[in-house]
Computed example of a mutant assay.
Amino acid sequence: MLVFVTHVAAARLFADAELSDFLNTYLSRSGYLGVSFFFVLSGFILTWTARPDDTTARFYRRRLVKIYPNHFVTWLAGLSLMIWAGTAINAGNTLPSLFLVQSWSPSFGVMMGTNGPSWSLACELLFYLSFPLLLLWLRKIPAARLWTAAGLVAVAVWVVPLISQLLPEDPVAPFQPVSWWKYWFTYFMPASRLFEFVMGIVMALIVQKGRWIGMSRGHAFLLLGLAYVLQVALPDSWGLVAPVVLPLGLVVAAGAVADITGQRSVFATRTMVWLGEVSFAFYLVHILVFEYGPIGLVTHPGAEHARGTLVSIGLIAVTFALSLLFGWLLYTLVERPMMRRFSKPRKKPDKAVKAPAPVS
């Protein structure tokens, strides 16, 4: 939903220029927070649920079945909509995204592919491929030094925008006041985002090994709120990712501790759990609804780019409802059945043992 809000802010739907500027200034990076949360949470959950009897092949199988069927369906949908809209189709804007390698390219057209949000799956693919080895290494860290490891990961996160300062200043990125090269290197390139995944792994080990500092969810969220203010305020590539990674690790860990100690949470309600279940599918479909649905119709070149406040709110509400509907359909008809059928290898039936013939 944070990513959805970011795209609403970037669309500048409102005729009131001050309102559009306000939303774009203060909410356009909320989705950046959401993506970082997803990456940190991935590392935490995969570590939390890792089984000692699991194999690398089985792990890869589960991860591939989890993300690729949804991706393939939305890739086909995006390709079909591009053809319908008369968009030029070529190998660059189709094949890299099909194989989830598009984010390694600094070309905007290649990276957005047929369905823009799938860029983050290219990062997740790197995370999944690296996880068995990362977990093996990180588990060797003595429990007393895990917080030191978390601090080193947090420092590494800040090194990424520091290195990006060596990159060219032109051209300027389409979404943020930063050069495209810095933007791509800091935000989109999979290797640069690996540290957020590692932060999640380290935080899970901290909780598992009894090294949690006792921070409450409320204090963790307060720290995250302050970090988001910093994320909005910092210039250039400094505010794209780095400020929120450690606070997000604290939020995820505090939430896990609250859960295992039986504390009540709004996130445990039936509605929130359902929204969580469909959130991956929602994320994958929402930009297609943005681009080819009601908002796309009023923001395409030649159309009026700003409508009255009530009309704009209506467009946002309809777009959200359609995204949720298509996300639910994708989850129900693709993601859940594929996980049930293919996430585990089928058990081979036991061969029947013939009883010996009776002796007369």
Score class of each variant (00 low, 15 high):
298 V>Q: 13
213 I>Q: 13
6 T>E: 10
191 A>E: 06
147 W>A: 02
319 T>M: 08
182 K>N: 08
298 V>I: 15
103 S>Y: 08
101 V>H: 08
1 M>K: 07
323 S>E: 07
216 S>Q: 00
152 L>A: 11
308 G>F: 12
25 T>K: 07
162 L>F: 15
76 L>Y: 10
158 W>Y: 08
42 S>A: 12
132 P>A: 04
308 G>H: 01
333 L>S: 04
333 L>R: 00
222 L>I: 08
156 A>L: 14
223 L>H: 00
177 P>H: 04
181 W>H: 15
293 G>K: 09
121 L>Y: 08
166 L>F: 13
116 G>I: 01
72 F>D: 05
359 V>D: 15
257 V>I: 12
294 P>C: 11
6 T>N: 06
3 V>Q: 06
143 A>H: 06
279 S>R: 04
74 T>K: 04
271 T>F: 14
55 T>G: 12
263 Q>V: 06
257 V>R: 13
284 L>N: 07
275 L>Q: 09
96 P>Q: 03
54 D>V: 06
90 N>V: 09
160 V>F: 05
80 S>I: 14
241 V>N: 00
270 R>W: 14
23 L>F: 04
34 G>D: 09
4 F>C: 12
302 G>C: 07
123 C>I: 13
161 P>I: 03
235 P>C: 12
8 V>K: 07
334 V>Y: 00
169 E>Q: 11
65 V>M: 11
141 I>S: 10
9 A>P: 05
146 L>Y: 01
37 F>W: 15
86 G>E: 04
307 R>G: 13
318 V>S: 14
35 V>Q: 05
342 F>L: 09
122 A>K: 02
144 A>I: 01
250 L>P: 04
61 R>G: 14
259 D>R: 10
46 L>T: 06
79 L>P: 05
308 G>R: 08
353 V>E: 13
213 I>R: 14
162 L>I: 02
286 H>L: 11
119 W>I: 04
81 L>V: 00
134 L>I: 03
250 L>R: 01
8 V>W: 02
238 W>Q: 05
178 V>K: 01
312 S>H: 11
204 A>F: 10
74 T>P: 11
288 L>E: 10
165 Q>E: 11
180 W>M: 13
117 P>T: 13
162 L>H: 06
137 W>T: 13
200 G>Y: 02
107 S>K: 08
259 D>E: 07
82 M>R: 04
246 L>G: 00
295 I>T: 05
226 L>A: 15
243 P>E: 07
83 I>E: 07
29 R>C: 00
29 R>V: 03
284 L>E: 09
169 E>V: 13
256 A>S: 06
344 K>M: 08
118 S>T: 15
201 I>L: 13
170 D>M: 11
161 P>N: 09
70 N>E: 13
7 H>D: 11
204 A>L: 08
212 W>I: 03
50 A>R: 07
